[in-house]
Simulated scan of single mutants.
Amino acid sequence: MLFDYVLAVTLSESGIAQDAADKWISSGDELRMSAGWSCYC
């Protein structure tokens, strides 16, 4: 989805990106998990 990609790219430039990505990936919510993995990409 475009939304999770844009959010992830924006977040990846911040200092909290890894913590947020880890929390989203473990959330179980499909959209949040996708955004979390996109942060790592």
Rank of each mutant, 00 (worst) to 15 (best):
M1L: 13
M1R: 13
M1W: 12
M1A: 15
M1C: 13
L2Q: 15
L2W: 09
L2M: 10
L2F: 08
L2V: 08
F3V: 15
F3I: 15
F3A: 15
D4I: 03
Y5S: 14
V6H: 05
V6P: 00
L7Y: 11
L7C: 11
L7H: 07
A8L: 00
V9M: 06
V9I: 08
T10C: 07
T10G: 08
T10S: 10
S12T: 07
S12L: 05
S12R: 12
S12G: 14
S12Y: 06
E13L: 13
E13F: 12
S14K: 06
S14R: 06
G15N: 06
G15H: 02
G15F: 04
I16V: 08
I16T: 04
I16E: 05
I16S: 00
A17E: 04
A17V: 02
A17N: 05
A17H: 03
Q18K: 13
D19E: 15
D19F: 12
D19G: 08
D19W: 11
A20I: 15
A20K: 07
A21Y: 04
A21T: 05
A21N: 02
A21S: 05
D22H: 09
D22E: 14
D22F: 08
K23R: 14
K23I: 09
W24N: 00
W24Y: 08
I25L: 06
S26Q: 05
S26E: 06
S26T: 02
S27E: 12
S27V: 09
S27W: 10
S27A: 14
S27T: 13
G28N: 01
G28W: 04
D29P: 01
D29C: 06
D29I: 14
D29W: 09
E30F: 08
L31G: 07
R32I: 06
R32T: 07
M33K: 12
M33C: 04
S34R: 14
S34D: 08
S34V: 05
S34G: 08
S34M: 07
S34I: 01
A35R: 00
G36M: 01
G36N: 01
G36Q: 04
G36C: 06
W37R: 10
W37C: 03
S38T: 08
S38Y: 12
S38A: 12
S38K: 12
C39G: 04
C39I: 15
Y40I: 04
Y40R: 12
Y40D: 04
C41R: 11
C41K: 11
C41S: 12
C41Y: 09
C41P: 03
